[in-house]
Measured scan of single mutants.
Amino acid sequence: MTEYKLVVVGAGGVGKSALTIQLIQNHFVDEYDPTIEDSYRKQVVIDGETCLLDILDTAGQEEYSAMRDQYMRTGEGFLCVFAINNTKSFEDIHHYREQIKRVKDSEDVPMVLVGNKCDLPSRTVDTKQAQDLARSYGIPFIETSAKTRQGVDDAFYTLVREIRKHKEKMSKDGKKKKKKSKTKCVIM
């Protein structure tokens, strides 16, 4: 069974824990209790493949930012979460993405942009803004509501699919490099 290491990042209060708990335990946590770091595991079937999701729910508070490099190193894919009623959390996505790329030393890291709290009427981040940002990053965008469960499975499952595509691409690139290195030079 394939294991996928997913990391949920975003500013404090955007609903990272609520999304994760909704996926794992099928219930909505409405009281806000700032996370330092929590880890969850769940076995699911995605596109006919049974897999184990190892999900790291991270601290959004700035005082825990020193811990970010460590979990970013171990993560295979990242859910970059903002709240649709919090423009600052949307603007912060850029910083999370840049930090992930720096730590992973790669421009090509599996990510999904997630606009959470889409059940709320007080939207300050337009869907088109988020779609445009995701398009500019070359990553999928999904709106979710941890409260109603809308888009929750889709967000995590899409990230797994992005990781699969990335692994497939990397193995193809690896095979191309191996083929090239088999060419021999004969000096007579």
Results as ranks from 00 to 15, higher is better:
Val152Cys: 08
Thr127Lys: 08
Ile142Gln: 11
Ile163Gly: 00
Ala130Val: 13
Ala130Asp: 02
Gln129Cys: 07
Leu133Gln: 04
Thr158Met: 05
Ile187Val: 11
Gly151Phe: 11
Glu162Cys: 03
Asp132Arg: 04
Lys165Leu: 06
Asp153Leu: 13
Arg161Gln: 14
Leu133Lys: 03
Tyr137Gly: 02
Thr158Ile: 08
Lys128Glu: 11
Asp154Gly: 07
Phe156Thr: 07
Ala134Arg: 02
Lys167Ser: 08
Ala130Asn: 04
Ala146Gly: 15
Leu159Arg: 00
Thr127Cys: 13
Leu159Trp: 00
Val125Lys: 14
Lys128Ala: 09
Glu162Phe: 02
Val125Arg: 02
Arg161Gly: 08
Lys165Thr: 06
Phe141Gly: 00
Lys165Arg: 04
Ile187Ser: 15
Pro140Thr: 02
Thr127Asp: 11
Lys128His: 06
Thr183His: 00
Asp153Arg: 11
Arg135Lys: 10
Lys167Pro: 01
Lys184Trp: 00
Glu143Val: 00
Tyr157Lys: 15
Leu133Asn: 02
Phe156His: 01
Arg164Asp: 15
Asp154Ile: 05
Tyr157Glu: 15
Ala134Ser: 05
Val152Asn: 07
Tyr157Leu: 10
Gln131Tyr: 10
Lys167Glu: 12
Tyr137Asn: 06
Gly138Asp: 14
Phe141Ser: 04
Asp154Val: 05
Cys185Gly: 10
Gln129Tyr: 07
Phe156Pro: 00
Met188Gly: 13
Cys185Ser: 15
Ser136Ala: 13
Asp132Glu: 12
Ser145Thr: 11
His166Pro: 02
Gln129Phe: 11
Ser181His: 03
Lys176Asp: 10
Tyr137Thr: 06
Tyr157Ser: 14
Arg135Phe: 06
Thr127Glu: 10
Val125Tyr: 08
Phe156Met: 15
Phe156Tyr: 04
Asp153Thr: 12
Lys175Trp: 02
Asp126Ser: 10
Asp154His: 09
Val152Leu: 15
Phe156Asn: 00
Val125Glu: 09
Leu159Met: 03
Lys182Ser: 11
Leu159Tyr: 00
Gln129Ser: 05
Asp173Leu: 05
Arg135His: 10
Val152Trp: 15
Leu133Tyr: 06
Gln150Ala: 11
Lys178Phe: 11
Ser145Arg: 01
Arg149Met: 06
Thr127Phe: 13
Ile139Gly: 03
Ala130Arg: 01
Lys169Cys: 11
Thr183Gly: 11
Val152Ser: 08
Glu162Leu: 04
Leu133Glu: 04
Gln131Trp: 05
Ala155Cys: 09
Gln129Arg: 06
Arg135Thr: 11
Ser136Val: 05
Lys176Tyr: 12
Asp154Gln: 12
Arg135Pro: 01
Asp132Pro: 01
Lys175Ser: 07
Val152Gly: 05
Ala134Asp: 01
Tyr137Cys: 11
Cys185Asn: 15
Thr158Asn: 07
Gln131Ser: 11
Lys169Gly: 11
Asp126Ala: 05
His166Phe: 12
Arg164Met: 13
Leu159Lys: 00
Leu159Glu: 00
Gln131Asp: 09
Ala155Leu: 15
Lys182Gly: 13
Asp154Lys: 10
Val152Lys: 04
Val125Ala: 08
Val160Cys: 03
Glu143Lys: 03
Tyr157Asn: 12
Asp153Cys: 12
Lys177Trp: 02
Lys180Gly: 10
His166Trp: 09
Glu168Phe: 06
Ser136Cys: 09
Lys128Gly: 08
Lys165Val: 03
Lys180Leu: 14
Ile163Ala: 06
Val152Met: 14
Val125Gln: 05
Asp153Gln: 13
Gln131Leu: 08
